[in-house]
Every structure is written in structure tokens, then in C-alpha cells.
Design a protein around this nucleic acid. Sequence first.
RNA 1: CGGGGCGUAGCGCAGUCUGGUAGCGCACAGCGUUUGGGACGCUGGGGUCGGGGGUUCGAAUCCCUCCGCCCCGACCA
Length: 480
Amino acid sequence: MPKEGITPRAEDYSQWYLDIVRNADLADYAEVVRGCIVFKPTGYAIWEAIQRGLDERIKETGHVNAYFPLLIPKSFLMREAEHVEGFAPEVAEVTRGGGEELAEPYVVRPTSETIIGYFYAKWVRSWRDLPLLINQWANVMRWEMRTRPFLRTAEFLWQEGHTVHATEAEAERETLMILHDVYADFVEKEMALPVIRGLKTEKEKFPGALRSYCIEAMMQDGRALQAGTSHNLGQNFARAFDITFTDQHNTVQHAWTTSWGVSTRLIGALIMAHSDDEGLVVPPRLAPIQVVVVPIHKNDAERGPVMEAVARITASWKGRIRFKIDDRDNQTPGYKYNEWELKGVPVRVEVGPKDVEKGTVAVARRDIPGRAGKSFVAQEGLSERIEALLDEIQQGLYQRALRFQQEHTFAAATYDELKAGVERGFVRCYWDGSSDDEKRIQDETRATIRCIPLDQPGVAGSCIYTGRQTTQQVIFARAY
RNA sequence: CGGGGCGUAGCGCAGUCUGGUAGCGCACAGCGUUUGGGACGCUGGGGUCGGGGGUUCGAAUCCCUCCGCCCCGACCA
């Protein structure tokens, strides 16, 4: 039975999602600011966990953090033709400052390739300055027509990496390395979310990029969510911003740049991939609180021994397990169980008078809701058992999501099969069509090519639309 | 941008059709009893009815107008 206040997932997926956001206390609508949300502490803590996991990997792979201005001269956007076409409709402008009309309007950054390109042009002189590997954690703004908490908001938080290289091959290597070693690794290992790594089609690529790679994840309604992208920008932005360097042979050359980003949209992915009718489900490795301890006592006589047991049990957890002792005395245990389940804490430990007596505790796992996931275990060796359980839950969530993805990915040989398949999940098929063909299919099915997967069969087949022979397979799906 | 919905206490809503001076649940405060799956009783506090204008003896309610938010769709790194 679903929790009070949560519309069952099977009944109305979209409403279920919004109910989780509200009931897990992740965010509030900004109300007075169109299309924006307030990240409440529970939601922001998840973002901090995501930041931690990504920042570690970004730094391990040789990048450093920096910060560039929020405002960008409007003319900068115009310098790259595809870029301005892609972003102009959704930028917010600042036209006044200090009570006066500005000589040149600024835009609030929708992404920072342009302003960073301007500075990179100043900083890069020689091949010895390369590669330049910088990341920034920032907010950006895109005046989206339709917004949804976390999935698409007018203002969102993200990281955007911007690098400069001496050769095309090096830029390509960087683009793919980020995709694999930073994004896919993080999302799969920490968020327990299997992804498909692939290349975007011409129609779906980043405005101004040579090639865009992405990781695509499947949500529980079978729709796709782009969880991260990495772009090889070629020399497009280097030409637009005049990023040049002198090579070993004293020849001046345009540099090769990349950019890559993931955003607070990942919180939306987390919700839609793992949660259930009881509330949010957070994988243990990501969870800000991995274990919540609920002490149970009726009176002061019971309180002492129970709290003593709680202190003893958790004494060795510091630095090993992220935990919280919920000793609020103005809420009943039942209320607390429900609240922590809503918030997705992976494991709950209950300690009451009976446990003190028997040397046990009750352990409830969030991935198996209700009493079914609850068992009584000895206090002896509890820390180890909980660590093992957290690991088991982490693997279990990943396997469950992987199985779901596999069971909802369909091979299609005909257009009719494609149409049927995208109603329920991903469709994998041969493709040799044009951008126009892709657009027509989108109009007819609401599905788009999410990516050209990096792992290809290597044998030919016939294109689902044109019938031409090709070795290229793509993934079609409806996307968020 | 098209379609729909909503704006009344912190939150969720009723009241609007048929005008008579604002109510319910939750939350909140106090007291007491409770506490192993969303506790209960009693008492109490809290409202420019989205803004402006109009009609009327009288407007949450009728009329005009503006604004905002949400949902669906289209669009979309």
C-alpha cells in the first residue's frame, strides 16, 4: 500500500514523481520565480553527495576547479553560429545596472563555452600550455518553456568542464575518458544506475559541437533520461574565440576544445530510477544518511538503558557508516519509520527495551519496504553486518535497475515494432536515416534517437526506416 | 506557444452557481495521557479571501481587468 500523500507509481507516474519530491522534502517550488525550485536541505544533501563523487573523479583525472562570471556579454553568444541558434531562444538578459541602461546587454549564462573561450584565448600561447583542464561548479539559467523539479528547471546547478588540447585525437580521448571514467563510472557505481554510452546524432548534438557523447539511463516508466554529456567541440569554439597556440614547429594553430557537464537533473534520475510508492530510495554509497537509528522507550526508566545500548552499538560507526540517531521525543516510532522511508534512508535500526534485554536490534532495509524487509539481528557483530547489508543493497539496486533496463529494451526490425517498443522502453535497431527521417519519426512516435551506442554488433542489417544495409544500430526512446 | 486547472490560515481544501460580513482537516501553542508501523483528549492562537477597478445598503461570492502558479501537449542540451 502506498504511503499517504503519494500517488501510486502505476496510476500516474508523473504525479508520483512530484509527490516523491514533495514528501521526501527534497524541494519546494520557488513560486515567486518562474520555473525555479528551492533545493531543501534533504535534496541539497543529495546534490552534495553527487558533487563529492564527481569532483573526486574530475580531480583524479587531472582537472582543477575554477570559476567564471555568471554574466556573459550578449555578443559572445553570437560568435558561434550553431551555438547562438541553439541557445538564443532560452537566454535571460540583463539590460540595466546601477540604475542605467547598459551599453551592451549581458546574458545570464546558459552554459559557459563562450566566456571561457574568451579567457582561454588569452591564456593559451604555446603547446606547452596544453592541455588546459578546468572544471567549474556553477548555476546556469535557461528560460525553458516547461519545467519540472530537478528534471528541467529554469535555473539549475551543474559542473561544466572545459578543456583545450593540441590535437584532435587528444580532444577526442578526453571527451571519451570523461564519459567513461567520470560520468558512467560515477552514475553506475555510486548512483546504482546502469547507463548506455553512446554518440548523439547530428540532430541531437550540442549546438556548436563536432560530436556529442552521452550516457542515457532508463527510468521506471521506460523513458530515457540523459544523465550526462561530453562534447568534442572540434575547433569550432577555438575559431570563434581565437584560441590559438604555437606548436613545436613554430606554427600557429587553432586548438581543439571539449566541454562536458552533468547537472542537478541527476537527482531527478535518482528518484525516477529507484524510488517506489513508499517514497525515495537512495543507494547507500550516495546516501547522506546510510543508517538511521530509532531508539524506542516508553518512559525514563527505559530511556536510560536504551540510549546506553544505542551509544554502545554506534560507538564504532564513526568514519565507517554515515548514521543519524533520531532521538526526537515528540514523535512516535511509527511516525519516524515512515518519515525516514519517505526520505530514502537505506537502513533503519530500531533499538527498544526488548532488544536491550535480548542483545538484539531490529534492522529494516529500504529496498524491501514494510515488514518484509525487517529482521532481528544480534548486537554482536552488527557493524560488519550493516556494512555488508549496505553493500548488498547497493548491488541489489543496480542489478534491479539493470534487469529492468534489459527487460524493457527491445530489438526492432520493422517500423511497427519500433512504434510498439517505444511505448514500453528502449528500442534498439539498425539505422541509416537522415535528420529529416528522425524528425518524422519523432512527430509520429514522440521518440527520438537517444544515442548511437558505443558497443556495436559489427554485422550489417537493414535500416528500420530506409531499408538500406548498415552496420549502425541506434537506441530510440521517449525522453525526459 | 496551444489546451486545461487553480489562487480563501503555514499546508490541503469547502464556501462562489443562489451576495448577508469566513469554515473544515492537518500543522502550530498549552496541559494531560501516550510511544515496537503515520497517537489521543481538552483548550487556544492564526485570514489584506492573488492585485486593481466596478455594481450593490452590503462582495470570497456578480461584472471588468491585470498578475501569478501548477498540470498536459508542442518545443528543448
